[in-house]
Design a protein around this nucleic acid. Sequence first.
DNA 1: AATCCTGTATCAAACGATTGTTACATTTGG
DNA 2: CCAAATGTAACAATCGTTTGATACAGGATT
Lengths: 218, 218
Amino acid sequence: MKDAGGGVSTLRDSLAAAMAGGELSERHCEILEAAAGLFAERGYAATSVRDIGEKVGLLGGSLYHYIKSKEALFVRIHDMALQVAGDRIATAMAGKTDPWERLEAACVTMLEIQLDPHSLTMPLMNDFASAPPEIRERLVAKRDAFEAIFRELIPGLPLDPALDRGVYRLLLLTLLNNVSSWYRQGGMSPEDIGRQIVRIFRHDVKEKEGVERVSPAR
Amino acid sequence: MKDAGGGVSTLRDSLAAAMAGGELSERHCEILEAAAGLFAERGYAATSVRDIGEKVGLLGGSLYHYIKSKEALFVRIHDMALQVAGDRIATAMAGKTDPWERLEAACVTMLEIQLDPHSLTMPLMNDFASAPPEIRERLVAKRDAFEAIFRELIPGLPLDPALDRGVYRLLLLTLLNNVSSWYRQGGMSPEDIGRQIVRIFRHDVKEKEGVERVSPAR
DNA sequence: AATCCTGTATCAAACGATTGTTACATTTGG
DNA sequence: CCAAATGTAACAATCGTTTGATACAGGATT
């Protein structure tokens, strides 16, 4: 797999790195990871601190020597997940120049992250609903920053002008964020699904006849 | 009596009809409607019975002369919303024969339902996560039945064979179900968005030249 | 070597708040 | 005056969180 420079490719990797750097104890890692899984699985409101504790073999109250609050824990996980995802997508796109290829790389990578059962991270990108309004603000802001990747990617596409680029971007992101709701292992691979999505979303501008155009790769 | 040809078009209408039919008291209606709004807004786990009571001007406990339990309330709302949506989409498609037109009618109608601030209904179609596992089963089953509309619609499309019809359907439904997460009033209309979606998803099979093709035998 | 000290990690138990729910009393309208 | 509608008040459970005690490690002191 791609291991570019710093090579952080999953939440777990990121946690391991932070651990090696001495910023995080092993237990701290376990807790973040367990919490990430539960939040992703059942949502913020439906996940109790005691649930998280049980998953790492601690009492609920014992977690508070590692976390400041449940909210802070959630926010932290969310931030880390976005960071990891952003980095990984960026490195996946690096090198590619063809706009559609770049888009495909971004989509496939995003799906690989979200659908990897071991990375248990990003499904919480859509859990804003059950989170307290105060932290929701923060989450939305961070996610918007993350989505800047796509905001920069899409203007470069030779897209059929009949399509509104604004909704186009929103629809694509909506899709990438929610495939996790029906994806089951054993069927199509994240890569296959990503390619299908790009195939659906690929509508090249119609080339006018008589206009020379060096067509990119294909 | 619900006449499929005539006019149940929102959850509120459906409630009004049930009220007129004597099946539901007015208060009962208010409660269902308020609950629908809150469930849609914050999810199942993050909505308390007292919240619902407050919205209709009652104490939490007082609701229990109208509902059996919070779970039953949720299931009921979910079922009604699906019923209403199914009926409305069916009537919107009635009459149309062209496959793409039928698809567009279904998509636009689905979005109109989900994005209508007065119908406050269907966003809970994706709130399975925070609902107790027992009722989740039931919800999934009902939703699958609802989605049969699309399962029947898509085989009729003259679709580019490079696209897998299975994921195609899933992706389309994912989109329709989640536009509500970013839709804000004042921008594009639900109809506009629906049309954009169909435009993106429209990939006709390439007709081979010289091959006569009559309407698909079936 | 035995003792003390300090800090971390964990548990046990409880706090007050909130949850879904119920039993009973009270109001209200016909 | 009765029945439906609503309030009052509490139940046990669970929530996030805090407190205080306990166990155990290593380093410093005696």
